[in-house]
Amino acid sequence: MADKHTNLIVSAAPHVNAPQDTASIMRDVCIALIPAVSVAVYVFGLQALILTLVCCAACVFMEWATRRIMGRPDTTSDWSAMVTGLILALNLPVSMPYWMAVVGCFVAIVVAKQFFGGLGQNFANPAIVGRIALFIGFATQMSTWAVTPRMSSAIVNVAGADAISGPTPLGLLAKGSAVPTNLEMFLGNINGSMGEISAAALIIGGVYLVIRKVISPVIPLSFIGSVAVMSLVFGLDPIFQVCAGGVMLGAIFMATDYVTSPITNAGKVIFGIGCGVLTMLIRMYGSYPEGVSFAILFMNILVPHIDSLTKHVAFGKEKGGKK
């Protein structure tokens, strides 16, 4: 992360020199998302790839244009706008009109990120803000879920043979209909947002990120774990609840954003459990069938408070003491 800080004067060698910088981290996130994009293209067809490319291009262009207009140094080379575009695309249904997706990119990059000062200053994950703005602003388009022959028979049968859209597994569950099997849920033979369908592909990406030390497994494990525990409390199938909706995508790729997650491990556990509990509460009692993005946004806003509660006590100082 020392690439742009040429105005810092550093003294007293030796220094640890790590090859990791913002761009390499963001590149790793992009690589980790390849399995999820591949599954989306396999299940939904080529349009999934086109929508993903449109989102990435729009985000990178808006990052470049906004920083140019505001007279700030160009940051497109740190790949963060690319990651935002990719994650936002994976949060959209495949049938989303392109211009609406571009509006979402505008909200994510310009409003949620650059208006607050760019990478590192954003109060919440830009992709989440973009997704929620689209979800509230274009409610119909954001909850039209395409059905293709590669999906579970539970979905295709309910939708009808010629239907182009049908209910998601969580929608089926809410109506009390038969749901896809857990194996179908895990592999991704279901509908939903492009990137959230396959738990398997997302876990592969997550394991890659953990091995490359890009993310710490604390947030994903506490997030997914608390969703599983909460579903047992409510008497639901934990495997179904964990694989359904955006839990995997949110826990592995969105809740782990450095800028908007707590620093200490204790803080990360609180953050992950908060996300998981809120997700399940929204699923059970909220008016929306899915609550991952709202849960993460809410916890994002609490991060400064979590950080100040879980500050490390410096060696030799008393707990709670200020000096």
Binding site: W99, M100, V103, V111, A133, I136, G137, F138, Q141
Partner: peptide
């Protein structure tokens, strides 16, 4: 010819537009 982006008439959109106009 365009689907309205209805978040602008909802409370969160009010805060966004208000902030942008003040800026």
């Amino acid at each position: 010819f365009l689907t309205p982006f209805s978040i602008a008439t909802l409370p969160p959109g009010g805060f966004f537009v208000f902030g942008c106009i003040i800026a």
